[in-house]
Design a binder for these strands. Sequence first.
DNA 1: CCCCTTTATCGTAATTTTACGATAGCAGTA
DNA 2: TACTGCTATCGTAAAATTACGATAAAGGGG
Lengths: 109, 109
Amino acid sequence: MEIKLTTYPSEPCCNLDISGEEQTQLIAMFKALGNPTRFEIMKFLVTHPTCITGDIVEYLPIAQATVSQHLKVLKQAGWIGGITEGPATKYCLQEDNIAWFREKVGYIF
Amino acid sequence: MEIKLTTYPSEPCCNLDISGEEQTQLIAMFKALGNPTRFEIMKFLVTHPTCITGDIVEYLPIAQATVSQHLKVLKQAGWIGGITEGPATKYCLQEDNIAWFREKVGYIF
DNA sequence: CCCCTTTATCGTAATTTTACGATAGCAGTA
DNA sequence: TACTGCTATCGTAAAATTACGATAAAGGGG
């Protein structure tokens, strides 16, 4: 027979069990994705792996300098990585960090 | 026998298959959590369900007005809900929205 | 009704973010 | 070496965010 508690403590819908460096890293990733332009860049990279900066500039309605700045934010947050390829830079999703994000979010929510 | 492709298209590590209103909502939730103070408020609410604003003000080293502002952001993003209880306001996690967030993130990553 | 408690909002200052044009740097090519 | 193409960085302006004190609003107690 199952005994059910009808009073507190009730089961919280998430634990948010994270702290320190990991929390800082996760917050940085949240912050980076909390911007429509950067989210679009991420989506573009899913369908256009290893594309170069110019491809993204061509795709988005914003200036090249702004795109470069957003790419820097995404890179520093760990979402993407850039590889210099001649005069261009090829960007791609940082799969290991994305996997880490997926696991952490899956655990704390 | 399994045939393995060694060239593109390779399997992307996430699909980010979202758009429109849902994407806007998700970005707003990312943005709201992309702030250390607001993240701490969320963590506090996990361990202190239905606490009032004053409890959070007491816990955090920032002014009451600032806390109230952060609570507003979290509420508008859908993370929390507030119930007026006499002169005070009881805040709690918005479980349904959090569940939605968990499912969406689980799907697109 | 007056006061006290609690919280949201207002006004404002400092900081950060976002965006752009201009420029510099770097790799490849003629 | 000069030139072209591509991208990062610089300088700067506009907008948004963050933080605070002061004030207003609203509920409950005397």
